[in-house]
Design a protein around this nucleic acid. Structure first.
Length: 653
DNA sequence: CTAGGGTTAG
């Protein structure tokens, strides 16, 4: 880059010299160009030949001919630059750039645009910026090309800086500008600060009267969606008079990605009934994702049928999403069947299967699939390692996990990222090897992020380690002050150690920051309808019936040794009240609902938004034995398969 | 020169 900068300004001759030297081998073309078919020695010279060589992708030949051409045209340069872009060749791009500079085309805004595109394509934004700096006449095309290049390189702040500067000139944004600058907002390292910028662009869009432009408005929705601003996205969507399949898709994805799977499914059904929009594979992927999050098997089956009818069943992302739906509905064998039938598989297909076994606690199987993947010649990705390490963690395969972690660098040449360290901390911490977990953190060559400290805090909860919990939580309160879960976890750990005053302080901290505990929720799908439960659910029409059933079961269970875990209720209440609260937990309500409303022999499947509580875990074990029913509970991070009084997690979760 | 998607840990 340095050589080029100086050359561009002062050392022009060296370019030409270097260039001519490189052109030498093909001088035969210039000595007698007319011997080549279709080439005349008229005023157009070698231009048509260079152009057709560029179009064919014979870049080397094109460059050789160029070196002998005294009058290259703008079109010739354009095609050459494009060829460099498509071949991702920085060195050839530089040659063309030098050449057009020598021929006085360096102030041509059209070619500057193409050069910026080209440098962006070869991942050299710095040179793209340089072209922009040098060009004096900056058309909106030049600006847009740079915005696009910077957005692609995740330089959000830089884009906003330049966007504001552009707005001080007489150049006006167009519809392309808006899509690029909006995209730039969500790709910066510093997400929070650019939401403001996004809103600023939103205001400009309205001021300039672009609110009727579908493309722009859809990008705007997506920007809000990625910041988690569901209401803003929803508002933009509602105001759009013209919607197309992408606008619907962005809104559905927005819900699916922001933990609102119900709304995602609802909107999909609305799209199907109220518009003539034909769903694409992209839409199906998002809807399937929502379905997986809810563990809604019947919905999933309907969607699977739909996918087949629409002929979308050979599209890899759709298949991966389908596998995940079945896996998350507890139908792991169906996920395996789909995988087996695939004609082509990519790394994501494999990852889907690995994580499927992982969340069910089949650690060995997950490791086996991982090995099969490697044997079949697919290189594991960063996600493969997250999945397989997670699988080891859930199954307590500590040594296996450590071995795989080492193999990341040693065999697969993948540098561990923060999320891999988080997996290791979880793996070791869960296995009560907290000192080793701490050692891993201390040896990290990067800043341990919230995921790492969060994994440690979670382990402290399992193993009642107050001291370490204080250390982890103090870091978490700095790193993610608005995550309510951390305060609740710390309060629980204190309460578990009967440090009531400290527990109260942790809760006060939560409230002082204006946060609220995420309420525990459960879902159950019965006859294609999904029912949702919150703890001590007074609104539920069947609540009395559910309570009565649970009370009866609880009394029976007590006779066979069940002791309600009133110790985990951290309110200052008498033990009867505590028992009542425990019995009102949403997962118990959902189980009772399933027992009453589904047929005998059917598996009861429940989804929970948090980690399963210990009391519910033991009660569900009892119930599975008592009622001779299989109960499948998917909590935030794994599956619990209850059968005959036992759980598939072997009480390790 | 423009918009959306698969697999992921606490």
């Amino acid at each position: 880059m340095l050589a080029f900068t100086s050359a561009q300004t002062v050392q022009q001759p060296s370019f030409s010299a270097q260039y001519t030297a490189r052109g030498k081998p093909l001088c035969s073309i210039t000595t007698n160009p007319s011997t080549l078919p279709g080439i005349s020695s008229s005023s157009t010279g070698n231009n048509p030949l260079i152009q057709s060589l560029s179009r064919q992708g014979d870049l080397k030949q094109a460059l050789h001919v160029l070196s002998q051409e005294p009058n290259p045209s703008q079109l010739t340069y354009e095609l050459l630059i494009r060829s460099c872009s498509s071949q991702k060749s920085l060195s050839d791009g530089l040659s063309v750039h030098r050449h057009l500079f020598d021929n006085g085309f360096d102030q041509d805004p059209f070619l500057a645009t193409k050069l910026i595109n080209m440098y962006s394509e070869v991942d050299d934004v710095e040179r793209a910026l340089l072209v922009f700096d040098k060009i004096r006449k900056r058309t909106i095309y030049v600006w847009n090309a740079l915005f696009q290049a910077l957005a692609l390189a995740s330089r959000g702040e830089k884009v906003m800086d330049l966007y504001r500067r552009m707005n001080q000139t007489e150049i006006l944004s167009d519809r392309f500008t808006y899509t690029y600058v909006l995209k730039a907002c969500v790709v910066s390292e510093n997400m929070a600060s650019l939401l403001k910028s996004g809103k600023e662009i939103h205001a400009n869009i309205l001021r300039r009267g672009y609110e009727g432009h579908v493309h722009t408005m859809t990008t705007l929705m997506d920007m809000y969606a990625r910041f988690g601003c569901v209401n803003e996205a929803r508002h933009v969507f509602a105001e759009m008079r013209v919607k197309n399949v992408v606008s619907w898709g962005v809104m559905i994805t927005c819900y699916a990605k922001n933990s609102m799977p119900f709304e995602a499914l609802e909107l999909f059904h609305e799209m199907m009934s109220r518009s003539d929009t034909v769903p694409t594979s992209v839409i199906m992927v998002s809807v399937l994702q929502a379905c997986a999050a809810l563990a809604a098997l019947e919905q999933g089956r309907l969607l699977h049928g739909f996918v087949l009818r629409r002929g979308l069943d050979s599209i890899l992302p759709v298949i991966s999403a389908l596998m995940t739906v079945y896996a998350r509905c507890g139908k792991i064998e169906l996920a395996q069947t789909i995988f087996d039938k695939m004609e082509k598989r990519d790394v994501v297909s494999w990852n889907s299967l690995i994580s499927a076994y992982g969340v069910h606690g089949f650690g060995e199987k997950a490791v086996e699939i991982f090995k099969q993947m490697v044997c079949s010649g697919i290189s594991p990705s960063v996600v493969s390692f997250v999945s397989v390490l997670g699988a080891c963690s859930h199954a307590g395969l500590v040594e296996k996990g450590k071995e795989l972690f080492r193999s990341m660098v040693q065999i697969h040449r993948i540098q561990p990222r923060v999320e891999h360290y988080a997996c290791m901390v979880d793996l070791l911490g869960r296995a009560n090897r907290l000192d080793e977990a701490v050692k891993i953190i201390e040896e990290m060559r990067m800043e341990p992020g919230p995921k790492v400290w969060g994994a440690l805090l979670g382990s402290c909860k399992i193993h009642d380690n107050v001291e370490l919990a204080e250390r982890a939580s103090s870091r978490l309160f700095e790193l993610e002050p608005r995550n309510a879960g951390n305060y609740v976890l710390l309060a629980d750990i204190y309460a578990g150690a009967k440090l009531w005053q400290e527990a109260r302080r942790a809760k006060q901290l939560l409230e002082a920051r204006g946060l609220q505990k995420v309420p525990g929720r459960c879902w159950i799908e019965v006859k294609r309808k999904i029912y949702s439960f919150v703890s001590v659910d007074e609104q539920n029409p069947q609540i009395e019936q559910l309570r009565a059933l649970l009370l009866r079961l609880s009394m029976e269970m007590k006779e066979t040794g069940y002791v309600p875990r009133t110790d985990i209720v951290h309110y200052d209440l008498d033990s009867d009240e505590k028992e009542r609260i425990l019995l009102g937990h949403s997962e118990k309500l959902a189980v009772a609902f399933g027992l009453i409303n589904s047929n005998k022999g059917e598996v009861i499947r429940i989804t929970k938004n948090l980690r399963l509580c210990e009391d519910c875990h033991s009660v569900t074990k009892f119930i599975s034995k008592f009622t001779n029913r299989e109960i499948l509970v998917k909590d935030v991070n794994r599956f619990h398969h209850f059968r005959d009084g036992l759980c598939s997690c072997r009480d390790y979760w």
